[in-house]
Simulated assay, not measured.
Amino acid sequence: MPKPRRILVCVTGLSPQVVTETLYALAVKQGWVPDHICLITTAEGAKRVRLSLLSEDPGWFARLLKDYQLPPIRFGLDDIRVLTDAQGKELSDIRTPQDNERAADFIVTTLRELSADPDSQLHVSIAGGRKTMGFYLGYALSLFGRPQDRLSHVLVSEPFESSWNFFYPTPYSKVIELNDKTLADTQDAEITLASIPFVSLRHGMPDQLMQGAVGFAGAVAAINRSLAPPELIIDLEAKRIRAAGSIIPLPPVELALLSVFARRALNGLPACAAPSKEVPDSPWAVWFMLEYDQIRPERGDEDATRRSLAKGMDGDYFSLHKSRLHAKLKKRLGPAAEAYLINNGRRRPYRYSLGLPPSSISYRKLAVADTQAVSEHTTLSSTDRSPS
């Protein structure tokens, strides 16, 4: 198997040394050599990295590679991602609540992008930058991190910690002046990489949030909704439901099928058999049309549905629209969709039901207040009518 593309992700502020210190701990002490370094920083942080690490002199990044005979590692000006404000202007520092929000969204977007490649392996360091930057980076890895990804913090021994002249332990004697004007030999420095376990929440993220440009708050809200107790609200006339906090429009046939099982669950009825394959079932068609008639679909759709079920509903029709319903719920809700699926009991003879308790199901018009927890991808129509 080919080796996964290794990416070191760092945040820095006024201390560019974090990059070389972390790289030394990973590549020299642990043998994990990245192929690429991605740096998230402020405008001032980018300037310091450019002057101290990527310049010809002192050029500490190139020096580290040469001193320890490391292979080429991609890290240049194009790999420095600078935080920006709402107008696209680079931030020199993070000082306001708005700056914090922008930093959080920027970091989440970066981690989502870097983790989208299944052949990549991320090592994320939270050692640099403001504390909020490190927190957001660690949290973003919890949201999007995979089993192969790692999180760490680098620790530097005294008296080298926070020294402006120290960048990594050299394999030879090099005397530097410390911040308190005393002298020390960089050959004596010790660097330790503290591994930080993280809880991966990636499996709870809906597909839309994994692929779209959703910010930090939206991603956290999606996780919270997926972990909350299930609640299903059905608005038949508006042709939509609220499930796991998300408003989901549904086609009339899929909505009617879901409503059949929601109504049975509300009334405490047991699981039921699906219609037989290629054998029209008249009672099933009656159950279905009782819900369908409340939805008011478009005339053409309504006529086509009535013709299809004129002799009853067969198993193929049932299976087709159950699959379409499940696909829509899974796409919007991710793993949180499981509570809202029509399950078959998982053993033969299959009997189908909606596993929600009656207290979790209701029928009503979805008002504006119901949309407050909806993800940034959801747009509601202003022409929704009240149910009759």
Results as ranks from 00 to 15, higher is better:
residue 381 S to V: 00
residue 272 C to S: 11
residue 277 K to P: 03
residue 352 Y to M: 00
residue 236 L to N: 00
residue 27 A to G: 05
residue 316 D to L: 12
residue 51 L to N: 12
residue 301 D to K: 11
residue 26 L to C: 10
residue 310 A to W: 04
residue 73 I to K: 09
residue 208 Q to P: 01
residue 347 R to P: 00
residue 20 T to N: 05
residue 43 A to R: 14
residue 205 M to F: 09
residue 281 D to R: 02
residue 73 I to G: 09
residue 195 S to H: 13
residue 261 F to Y: 14
residue 160 F to H: 07
residue 274 A to G: 00
residue 129 G to L: 06
residue 298 E to D: 14
residue 161 E to M: 07
residue 290 L to I: 13
residue 32 W to R: 13
residue 336 A to N: 05
residue 109 T to L: 13
residue 36 H to A: 00
residue 337 A to N: 03
residue 264 R to K: 14
residue 234 I to W: 08
residue 47 K to A: 13
residue 221 A to S: 15
residue 247 I to N: 11
residue 67 D to R: 07
residue 130 R to P: 01
residue 108 V to Q: 04
residue 94 I to V: 15
residue 119 D to R: 13
residue 351 R to S: 00
residue 235 D to H: 11
residue 158 E to F: 03
residue 305 T to Q: 13
residue 178 L to D: 02
residue 136 Y to A: 05
residue 285 A to Q: 06
residue 318 F to Q: 00
residue 249 P to E: 09
residue 237 E to H: 14
residue 238 A to N: 15
residue 90 E to S: 13
residue 231 E to M: 11
residue 161 E to I: 09
residue 312 G to N: 05
residue 311 K to H: 13
residue 334 G to L: 10
residue 146 R to I: 03
residue 217 A to E: 14
residue 177 E to W: 07
residue 210 M to E: 13
residue 54 L to S: 08
residue 32 W to N: 08
residue 84 T to P: 00
residue 101 E to Y: 08
residue 188 D to E: 15
residue 89 K to W: 10
residue 116 A to P: 03
residue 330 K to L: 10
residue 202 R to H: 14
residue 233 I to G: 04
residue 388 S to D: 15
residue 386 S to I: 12
residue 90 E to M: 10
residue 372 Q to C: 03
residue 276 S to F: 05
residue 21 E to I: 08
residue 340 Y to P: 05
residue 260 V to D: 03
residue 88 G to E: 08
residue 122 L to K: 07
residue 380 L to M: 14
residue 42 T to R: 06
residue 161 E to V: 13
residue 345 G to D: 01
residue 162 S to D: 15
residue 202 R to P: 08
residue 176 I to A: 06
residue 57 D to K: 14
residue 77 L to R: 13
residue 343 N to W: 00
residue 68 Y to V: 02
residue 272 C to P: 00
residue 313 M to E: 04
residue 66 K to F: 06
residue 269 L to A: 14
residue 56 E to L: 11
residue 34 P to S: 05
residue 231 E to Q: 14
residue 181 K to L: 12
residue 239 K to V: 02
residue 46 A to P: 07
residue 19 V to N: 07
residue 333 L to S: 10
residue 17 Q to P: 05
residue 257 L to T: 03
residue 25 A to C: 08
residue 297 P to G: 15
residue 112 R to M: 06
residue 382 S to P: 07
residue 80 I to Y: 08
residue 180 D to L: 05
residue 15 S to D: 13
residue 238 A to R: 14
residue 275 P to W: 08
residue 187 Q to Y: 11
residue 349 P to D: 00
residue 197 P to F: 01
residue 59 G to Y: 07
residue 42 T to D: 01
residue 321 H to Y: 15
residue 353 S to I: 03
residue 211 Q to A: 15
residue 53 L to K: 09
residue 229 P to L: 09
residue 39 L to Q: 05
residue 355 G to F: 04
residue 349 P to A: 04
residue 363 Y to P: 01
residue 246 S to T: 08
residue 303 D to G: 04
residue 126 I to Q: 02
residue 338 E to F: 05
residue 245 G to P: 01
residue 103 A to W: 10
residue 122 L to R: 10
residue 247 I to K: 00
residue 122 L to Y: 08
residue 339 A to R: 12
residue 9 V to A: 06
residue 167 F to D: 10
residue 238 A to M: 05
residue 16 P to E: 04
residue 184 A to Y: 04
residue 20 T to I: 07
residue 45 G to I: 03
residue 272 C to F: 06
residue 220 V to K: 11
residue 375 S to T: 11
residue 275 P to R: 04
residue 248 I to L: 12
residue 31 G to I: 04
residue 143 L to K: 02
residue 91 L to E: 00
residue 202 R to Q: 12
